[in-house]
Design a protein around this nucleic acid. Structure first.
Lengths: 125, 125
DNA sequence: AGCTACGATATCGAGAACCGACATCGAGAA
DNA sequence: TTCTCGATGTCGGTTCTCGATATCGTAGCT
């Protein structure tokens, strides 16, 4: 694991969640997702992206529809009802995990929710 | 990938980020981290946890100090200056990635920041 | 001191995931 | 039909993850 890769490692799963998120917002194809991620300074290789799309489709969270754009065939993926359900579920989890890391530190991230504050203040031993 | 495992998969990196976060807050040992994660309903196997700790230490983000607690040897890890730096860097990234997924949907997560709104609304050709 | 108990830490092998490189596909141009 | 080229799909080597197992180290006991 490279020094710089550790941050990427922290978010690799999260990047994949973005696929589901975007597919819930609007139909999106693989090439657009790649492009989108670059905006964020991330990169998901084709060897990861397409299998992920296929997996999400196989699990019933995405469905695709072929279109032709500029003489090119593209598969546009859209989140199914089940996909939106799992997305919301992921959002809740994320809420919980993120709130803790962003809260109460030497930074001003008070906008984060602080629901689980009490759940982790029990004394050890 | 199991159906239920996909959500876990989304956050596996996030879970590891928690290690760094807790180590920045206070010295923490492997056993406590495991315990902590269970509060969140997550689980990181020992075969993943310890190598991760060693990696973070090798990269210079953590340093450890052995203590004896209840007759047991424990290695307490604490974030170094470099570790806190990378944590803040990760926080910014997280902020950015999370804000997008939580914002402007059929839910009430408006507490999330919306700084990068403009960065991804350029028309696709 | 030597022995045992036990929790914490560390390691190992099998399986899975990731990535980069390469292959395939398909619509329009020539 | 053949060529072009962007988009999709696949493959092998490398790395990561997990569960099981091993080691380590302190304290209590004799």
């Amino acid at each position: 694991m490279s020094d710089d890769g550790i941050v990427r490692h922290f978010f690799s799963g999260f990047i994949r969640l973005h696929i589901l998120y975007h597919a819930a917002k609007e139909p999106i194809c693989g090439a657009e997702i790649t492009e989108e991620l670059i905006h964020h300074g991330y990169r998901l290789s084709q060897g990861t992206l397409y299998p992920t799309l296929h997996l999400l489709e196989k699990l019933g969270y995405l469905k695709n529809e072929s279109r032709v754009v500029n003489g090119r065939r593209r598969k546009y993926y859209r989140a199914t009802a089940a996909g939106k359900r799992i997305l919301n579920q992921a959002r809740s989890k994320m809420q919980e995990l993120v709130a803790e890391v962003l809260e109460d530190d030497d930074r001003d991230f008070q906008t984060a929710r602080r629901k689980q504050r009490d759940a982790r203040t029990e004394p050890k031993q």
